[in-house]
Computed example of a mutant assay.
Amino acid sequence: MKHLVKAIVLVAIYLLFLTSCSGSSAPQAENDESGNDPTVEAVAPTPEPPVSGSKVEQIQFDSQALGKEMHATVYLPPDYSPDFRYPVLYLFHGYGGSHGDYFTYLHLDALADRLLQEDLIHPLIIVAPEYGNSFGVNSKPGEGNDPGSVSIGPYEDYLIQEIIPFIDTHYSTQASKAGRYIGGISMGGYASLYLGLTHHELFSKIGAHSAALWTYTSSDQFTDQRDWLYADERLRSGRDPFILAAPENLGEMEIYLDAGKGDALAEKDYELYTLLKTKNADVTWATAAGGHDAAYWGGQLEAYLGFYAGTHHVRSTP
């Protein structure tokens, strides 16, 4: 009898031990069909790294053409990767401006980020180079009547032979005509037309926004700059976009021209548009309220990026 009572007590103690180990408040789960023990806590998967934001870099290098250190501002899109080849927009500032103006004053990087997030443009690299008040041409001292503020030197060689190879070497670019665009504002609009039409084998898109152009009429603006740039007929024939707009320079190229309705340069820009149409160029004209100022350009930046990298085509406006 004593042995039976002792056995019952031992069994009771053993059952109490099992209950305390298993936790009586939580039901035991059965193994799932895969054979894994679901009572083992699953390890949470490592979260995907967040998409990196865009970057605005300041670069500098020694220009052999100009014999001095030069600079540029470079926009890299969010999640920039060396495993992907990006088209490049070379963007030129206006007279008296700086290569950082698009980002400091017009906040181009924030706009590009938003348009990318909304899937309105494709990822691209934007390069705003330093080029002084050179208009992007090769010039020499005494070659014209210097108005006192232009930048004289082989700036075309620097931009074409040094900037473009530097960018293609140091960044993951589409190093081809199809993946290379050029544009600018005011003097930069002239520079983009001049360089784009002169080196048409390098660029597939030209954007000239409120471009500085001249037709030698009484409505010409900034005539001191005109007379330096077009000091004689030889220089004018090699620099004037109205002359450079020949059919052989326009193949496989899109051109976007615009100016504010209150801009005195709008008349000249529209004249170039009508000329390009007669040459069967793929050209767009756009205009809106505004003048020759940052307020107008800031309001048009989305349309500009839409032209260069948009996921839809830009339409002309009367």
Rank of each mutant, 00 (worst) to 15 (best):
D101G: 14
Q60L: 13
E118P: 03
E271D: 12
P129R: 01
G291P: 06
A65M: 12
K261G: 15
Y273T: 03
E41I: 11
S218D: 08
L197H: 04
E118D: 15
F84C: 02
P78M: 02
S139W: 08
S192V: 05
M187E: 00
D263L: 08
F307A: 03
A175I: 13
D119S: 12
L108C: 08
L111N: 11
A246I: 04
G136L: 04
E30D: 13
Q64L: 13
L116C: 04
G188N: 08
V51I: 08
H200A: 09
W297P: 00
V150K: 07
L257H: 00
I8A: 11
E248P: 02
K205W: 02
I8M: 14
A294W: 12
S176H: 07
T104N: 09
E233G: 05
P141G: 09
L91E: 02
P47K: 04
G97A: 05
R234F: 13
Y80E: 04
F92A: 13
A191K: 02
Q60W: 11
V283R: 03
W214L: 00
D258Q: 07
D293H: 06
T73C: 03
P47F: 14
V51K: 15
C21G: 12
G196A: 12
A266M: 09
Y230E: 08
T274Y: 14
G184P: 01
V51P: 07
V137G: 04
G251Y: 11
Q221C: 09
A259W: 02
Q300G: 06
V283F: 09
S172M: 12
S20K: 10
V314R: 11
I13L: 15
G97V: 01
S34P: 00
P50M: 05
T274C: 05
H199S: 11
R239L: 00
Q161I: 05
D157Y: 15
Y105H: 11
S219R: 10
L193D: 00
A281T: 04
A295P: 00
G23W: 05
E254T: 14
S98V: 06
G96R: 05
V5T: 05
D62W: 15
D269M: 03
K268H: 10
N31Q: 15
S24I: 12
F203R: 08
Y270N: 07
R180L: 06
K68L: 10
A259E: 09
H107W: 13
G142V: 14
T215H: 11
L115C: 07
T39D: 12
D146A: 06
G96V: 01
T39F: 14
L4T: 12
P27L: 14
Y190V: 06
L272W: 01
L229A: 04
H292V: 07
I152Q: 03
G260C: 01
L229C: 02
V314Q: 13
